[in-house]
């Protein structure tokens, strides 16, 4: 009755449970309570993608607009959870190889988003630029497809050209 609830999540494989203020967004819970600061607060209004994390596998979402209390039981993966020990995730490696960033602020969100975007195209999800008569099955990761699918992640430094190249290399 006091505006708090108990919530239990898995964050990068580790259980996390706590009584939280109902107003806490997933982004604030990650950054301020769980010490997971990979996801960034760019706009806090769903407009930039810097806070992108993966829910229950590879469903990408904006952590800034989700109430943590509504996610009880969810499995959350942030950029910190992608590498396999010291071995970078292929998308992380491709961002390094292609210089897919400048200041790096948008990068954790870009990388989580790209991981999901690649999975979605492989699973045959169309995008708005996929021709409507395309047969079912994996969607060819053209530059136009990647630009559309990554459009929920803005980059103030304008590293887009290299981001597209990085995503393309892994998606092929």
């Amino acid at each position: 009755m006091d505006g708090t609830s108990e919530v239990g999540l898995r964050i990068n494989g580790k259980p996390f449970s706590r009584v939280i203020d109902n107003r806490t967004t997933l982004l604030d819970l990650l950054r301020e309570q769980a010490g997971v600061t990979g996801p960034k607060k760019g706009c806090d209004h769903g407009q930039c993608g810097a806070c992108t994390v993966l829910l229950d596998g590879d469903r990408r979402v904006n952590a800034c607009l989700l109430l943590a209390v509504s996610l009880d039981g969810a499995d959350v993966t942030t950029v910190e959870g992608l590498a396999d020990g010291d071995r970078l995730h292929p998308v992380q490696q491709a961002f390094v190889d292609h210089d897919g960033f400048q200041c790096g602020f948008c990068t954790p969100g870009q990388i989580c988003s790209a991981v999901a975007a690649i999975a979605e195209a492989r699973a045959g999800w169309p995008s708005v630029v996929t021709p409507p008569d395309t047969p079912p099955g994996p969607v060819e990761p053209t530059a136009a497809e990647i630009r559309e699918r990554m459009s929920g992640n803005l980059c103030r430094c304008g590293a887009y050209v290299n981001i597209v190249a990085a995503v393309r290399e892994v998606a092929r």
Partner: peptide, 23 residues
């Protein structure tokens, strides 16, 4: 939806971003 109601699939895909549509 894709097969029978393309207008609906296209309208949804042209809204917001995948992150937002997933929520």
């Amino acid at each position: 939806v894709r097969e029978r109601y393309p207008v609906l699939s296209q309208a949804l895909l042209s809204g917001a971003s995948t992150q937002l549509r997933n929520a």
